[in-house]
Design a protein around this nucleic acid. Structure first.
Lengths: 336, 336
DNA sequence: GTTCTATACTAAAACGTTTTACCGTTCTCA
DNA sequence: TGAGAACGGTAAAACGTTTTAGTATAGAAC
């Protein structure tokens, strides 16, 4: 049976003082609370030697805070989210906070479940890449005045902190690049979920076509159902390329779609070259190592996570309610 | 100000019963504890309507368990760990458990910090890919009889649950494949950390050379310092390939080393072809999409995480101490 | 020699649960 | 008819902290 951990009571008994005194010292309030330096040192020594660590659960219960930040993403194994998670974890850790995370897999119900779960664990703040149907839950958090920062995906007309990139312009510039390269039939492969981020990627594509006097053809826009297998994605794209041999450029709205696309091309023995270009969202080693190298819209992970963490800590330490900020960074089009 | 969440007391008051009764009902012990079905239904209705969720922190404090599993890896943004994390999270969630994770970045001190932190949050079980210097901390956990499963990296002569692949044979087979392909100068690029997993990858390489009557040349084994930047890795490998033009095959002991290696080759305009082969540890999209495709030792993520979770839950639900199990799966050599 | 202030510390409540031990009724049946 | 069992609940302690509102003593000030 696991030996019980030391409690503040044990330390108090051993030192012949009250638990109040020990508590003050643990929390660095010894001097402020008029505890003699002799006692302070004695207790600190005992704590040190016995390796006493305060029980955070008890502390949470009493204080109503947990020093835990909840992170909700679609899929932690997606390199974009994993990268953000790593950076956020690191920065949070330095301020004494831990991350507890979950993937929603884009299931509407799961967001609610997760938020409830996090709430019941008294997490201090929420970082969320919201899936469809997350709106009401997030509104509730806001009503309860919890620190919340959304990222990657924005919920329109919800007055909430947000960090993301300018997807409209990123798409726009990608298409502009295609036009500059004399591409005539530019396809967009995107995903069939109704979130602003994804919609803007489509809007930017459309607007760029208009501005460059190119026709919009519905047949060149593919909306993949979310959650389909990689094989399905590949099959679907093979079909697309076969039935539309005129396509000479493709913009992929997510990194996994781009990967699927490149696999489809490989399978068909179709080359990316001077007559067929590709641009992917979210840069990665895959694209750098591909032959030929693939152009990409790079999201600045470091900048994004910096901003997220700053917003979170601003809110955590704020006395009164802060006005939500929307931080829009720009994606960098890397042309290869 | 955030409106306070409902407590069991509120529900009890509203229903005119004691909190004991409510607690019994919440925990499905209503019938067993002789609460009338009338009362049970009434309370359940109130709970439902008011959306009451028990405070897990209070529950943890009282029960000493948290329904949280701690996951400690080297770097959550490494696709291998991210993939495992995702799968484990999913399986744990289905049993009502959450994951709280952290990256050690291979800093010896950090493992201790993290374990202490997890302990003070009363996590119910530990899943750890141990970094160097983690041994004593893990021994302590074992003494305290906490459920622990190590994965990826094994600590020799520590009697503890472990799930991993047979690194010796994986390396051995990789080299064997090179020999079959008539390679004469086979290099190993590995990392300079002293963990069994990494050592076995080296041992398998050596043994395969011996068994095939090939000379072992220390100059063909590169141990990269852990934590060096990608650029440093690339530079170092460029040097290697330049100073050892005789090399005609390379086994990379980790996925990020392989990626660095491919970048080095790309930079040098050196091709992977019939006269120069590469095998990487941990398969990934990068290798499938590379031209030519890169052979890899695939670790069976699904199988690994299944085994981890099973071991964890076996321990959590066991009444008495279980004998630790070492589960060694085989890596699959994918020849491309 | 009283009052005031500073010093050095502590008792006890509170956070929201779970669980043990108990208390009244009403039935059952010898 | 009266003893035990079954029924339907409840009071209160405990988990390990933090924090408020003290207490007790010593010295300072007048």
């Amino acid at each position: 049976m696991s030996t019980k951990a030391l409690s503040i009571k044990d330390i108090a008994k051993k030192a012949n003082v009250s638990i109040t005194t020990v508590s003050f010292i643990i929390n660095g309030k010894g001097v402020e609370k008029n505890i003699s330096t002799a006692v302070i040192e004695r207790i600190e020594k005992i704590i040190q030697e016995d390796g006493y660590k305060p029980n955070q659960v008890a502390r949470s219960l009493r204080m109503g805070t947990s020093k835990i930040i909840g992170l909700i993403v679609e899929d932690i194994s997606n390199p974009f989210f994993a990268g953000i998670a790593r950076l956020i974890e690191d920065k949070a850790y330095k301020k004494g906070y831990k991350i507890i995370y979950s993937s929603t897999e884009n299931q509407p119900g799961k967001t609610k479940e997760l938020i409830d779960l996090f709430k019941s664990r008294q997490v201090d703040a929420y970082i969320i890449a919201p899936a469809e149907g997350a709106r009401i839950e997030i509104e509730k958090l806001l009503l309860e005045n919890k620190p919340v920062v959304l990222f990657d995906r924005y919920l329109p007309d919800l007055n909430v902190n947000y960090v993301g990139i300018d997807n409209f312009n990123a798409s726009y510039n990608a298409v502009k690049q295609f036009v500059k390269d004399k591409r005539k039939n530019i396809a967009l492969v995107t995903v069939d979920i109704d979130v602003e981020q994804i919609n803007h990627r489509l809007d930017g594509y459309k607007q760029a076509l208009i501005d460059h006097q190119m026709p919009f053809s519905a047949g060149l826009v593919i909306k993949m159902p979310f959650g389909q297998t990689k094989e399905e994605t590949i099959d679907r794209l093979v079909q697309l390329f076969k039935s539309h041999p005129e396509i000479d450029a493709v913009l992929f709205a997510t990194n996994y779609l781009a990967i699927g696309g490149l696999m489809a091309l490989k399978q068909m023995n179709k080359m990316v070259n001077e007559r067929f270009s590709v641009i992917a969202y979210d840069d990665g080693d895959v694209f750098k190592l591909h032959t030929p190298q693939i152009s990409a819209v790079e999201q600045p992970l470091d900048e994004i996570s910096d901003n997220i963490i700053n917003l979170i800590f601003q809110q955590i330490s704020a006395k009164e309610q802060l006005a939500p900020q929307q931080i829009i960074l720009s994606g960098r089009l890397i042309i290869r």
